[in-house]
């Protein structure tokens, strides 16, 4: 099998994830899209690990999974906080940085 099969598959998932991040308004959906991006990256890591016949690819994928777990935890906490303060998780309304 070609290495590219996996890489392009992962690129497609990645771009769909980016689209989701850019387009979705709901905070939880944005987080889901980020998960998609992270998974796409993981496929890359594992594919390259297999390509080189090393376990390191898997190891890093595991690390990414762990970091993703942490990220989701904090991210959802933030979304909850936004919800509690604004009664809405529409990320377009969170624009306090507006200059």
């Amino acid at each position: 099998m070609y290495l590219n099969q996996f890489l392009i598959f992962s690129a497609i998932l990645f771009c769909i994830g980016v689209y989701g991040v850019l387009v979705r308004k709901n905070g939880v959906l944005v987080l889901m899209s980020i998960e998609l991006i992270l998974n796409a990256v993981n496929i890359n890591l594992v594919a390259f690990g297999t390509f080189h016949g090393q376990a390191a690819g898997q190891v890093f994928a595991l690390f990414v999974i762990a970091v993703a777990a942490a990220e989701v935890g904090v991210g959802l906490a933030i979304v909850l906080l936004i919800y509690r303060n604004r009664r809405s998780i529409d990320v377009s309304e969170a624009d306090l940085l507006k200059g």
């Binding site: 991040v21 850019l22 387009v23 990320v91 377009s92 969170a94 624009d95 306090l96 940085l97 507006k98 200059g99």
Partner: peptide, 12 residues
């Protein structure tokens, strides 16, 4: 100012 819309989406 417009670039600094405060929208995370725009920055992203």
């Amino acid at each position: 100012r417009g670039v600094q819309s405060g929208q995370v989406r725009n920055y992203a």
